[in-house]
Nucleic acid binder design. Structure first.
Lengths: 333, 333
DNA sequence: ATGAAAGCGCTAACAG
DNA sequence: CTGTTAGCGCTTTCAT
């Protein structure tokens, strides 16, 4: 259960430690015969370089630390795929630590990664903007992926929520809808942006915005939909703050016997798994998640290599049309 | 951007390196005055112990490596929560590496963790049973969580799929159903167990099992449901291999205008997020995911500490009744 | 109570 | 082409 060292390999191959080290690193100036002996010895022993020792002497760990704010949110699974791909291609490893959707745990995760001497750290998700994070940014390159960092010194990679909301509204208007209501997602920044994007797009089309408050949860969608249905001026389309809320809307409509999309069209946001797997596949706004991760990784890598500060990046969302949106029926138009 | 060392702290506090080390480790035999000086110096400098150096000299990293076979599967998010909790309480850190649902990547992840000298590693999910894994088990304690390991030397923690399927059938029978069909999940071991559990439970109730083939995906459920509806002997209840397949079933029933649960009851398996967020919340079988992780972590920790081999563990699933199951209508009973 | 010294496993000059 | 040497940052006897 104990690991062989470079010295064990050297002894077995009858060479010096340095030679083993060179062979492991793929150096060219080693005689074929000795190289073969070293490789054989290493294999027989099941030798595996000790990354801690390497990190210590090279002053570099080749690990990209990733703090995942919420592992339950599949949004981040794609972001991590992107990070992993970008990072692997240049010899790095992505090491993840869960933030458990909790500021203290995120700080702890950051501490762990810093002690491990990760060469850079990516905060995937709504990193609470703790002072610790800002302080840490002084000792390691940090970049936020999927949320805007409220601190100027920390670059972030996000998608344009304003634009995403506009995409949803434009699609609905193109279909012929005029009474388009929005169930918002609460106080979060992305929620505010989506609401603003919705309002601006409605006005641009000469339409009256109608917003009811909700949240980024199924329940938020349920409450919002109930409010809307109880009103005297029912919409022909609902744009929910995210897919989960849209599921809540669908649930209320199902219970009330309303036909979707016949009587009412619904659009979500995020293109999460539920949007696809829903009994009625959901029209929604997709964020380029994998790209989000790739770009974040690229920024972090750049900062490792030349230490220069980098700019934040904003990516474009796209519309994914599925089965919950159609032209409104004439009778209700 | 460079990290202060224990030596920097010592110099600033006007003491020796060893004294700093003792203070950091919380030793008692240090004068209050010097302790305070060291702590102050460390704080001012933003000192953070280098985990690589510690690992090297202590011959212990206090990291629990976790290979997550599929980050997109929220099942594992809970498992990881369990691991993290169990491990944190004894001073360990859980470090995750994504396996990207791919045998090669899993092997690579294992290699990474081994080089980092993780004190143990947990394979979360259907770890492909590569020889590498078995070989690795010789150099580090390994435990599989959420899938049975096919190798005797590697302990695993799973839930009882046979029992889970029985729970689903019993519930339906209790409700009065007799024509209960099963859409299976293909060749995976857990799929086979669920099918066997279903068949055994049906026979136990004196009922005729009726299995159509499907898969662990939405499409699997769709095909299975279509097969069933096309037949001349429609069931009054369908037990799907997992929640995703159940969503497919719901989708077909929705399209065909069948009322759920009025005309047809549906049960899923896994109690994933979609089961909750579905427009019609899904009755399903829940696996104690967090516990799965906790137990796996406990086993791994035990193996670190006394090196003795440990037994595999099988946990009990439970039934979660939601809105897709009711007593069959008399006319179709 | 405190410091000196050795060494964990490895790399990187530097000699030969 | 190959071996020797001096650390990387830290812990841990062992003296004092």
């Amino acid at each position: 259960m104990s690991h062989p060292t470079i010295f064990d390999v050297a002894r077995r191959a009858g060479v010096s430690k340095s030679l083993v080290s060179m062979v492991m690193r793929g150096a060219t100036n080693v005689s074929d015969e000795r190289r073969a002996r070293v490789i054989a010895a290493a294999e027989e022993l099941g030798y595996r370089p000790n990354a801690a020792a390497q990190s210590l002497v090279r002053q570099k760990s080749f690990v990209m630390g990733v703090i995942v704010s919420d592992l339950h949110n599949t949004f981040f699974a794609d972001v991590i795929d992107g990070i992993d791909n970008a990072v692997r291609s240049v010899g790095y490893r992505a090491l993840l630590v869960s933030g458990h959707l909790n500021a203290d745990r995120e700080t702890e995760a950051l501490e762990t990664l810093l002690r491990l001497r990760a060469d850079a750290v990516i905060l995937a998700g709504p990193a609470v903007d703790i002072d610790d994070v800002v302080a840490a940014a002084a000792s390691v390159p940090l970049v936020v992926a999927g949320a805007v960092s409220s601190h100027a010194a920390i670059p972030s990679v996000t998608t344009d929520d304003l634009r995403g909301a506009a995409l949803a509204v434009d699609h609905l208007v193109e279909l012929g809808h005029k009474k388009i209501s929005h169930i918002d997602g609460g106080d979060a920044l992305s929620s505010r942006l989506r609401r603003q994007g919705y309002e601006a797009a409605m006005r641009r089309h000469g339409l009256e915005p109608r917003v009811v408050s909700g949240s980024f949860t199924r329940d938020g969608g349920i409450h919002g939909a109930q409010t809307l249905l109880a009103g005297d001026d029912e919409p022909t389309a609902i744009f929910a703050a995210n897919d989960l809320a849209a599921m809540g809307v669908l649930s209320v409509l199902h219970d009330s016997g309303a036909d979707v999309p016949g009587e009412l069209s619904v659009v979500g946001y995020d293109n999460t798994a539920v949007a696809q797997s829903s009994p009625i596949p959901l029209t929604t706004i997709d964020q380029p998640r994998t790209e989000l991760g790739e770009v974040a990784a690229r920024l972090a890598l750049e900062r490792i290599n030349d230490g220069t500060d980098v700019q934040s990046v904003v990516l474009e969302p796209t519309l994914v049309i599925r089965d919950t949106t159609v032209t409104p029926t004439h009778s209700r138009q």
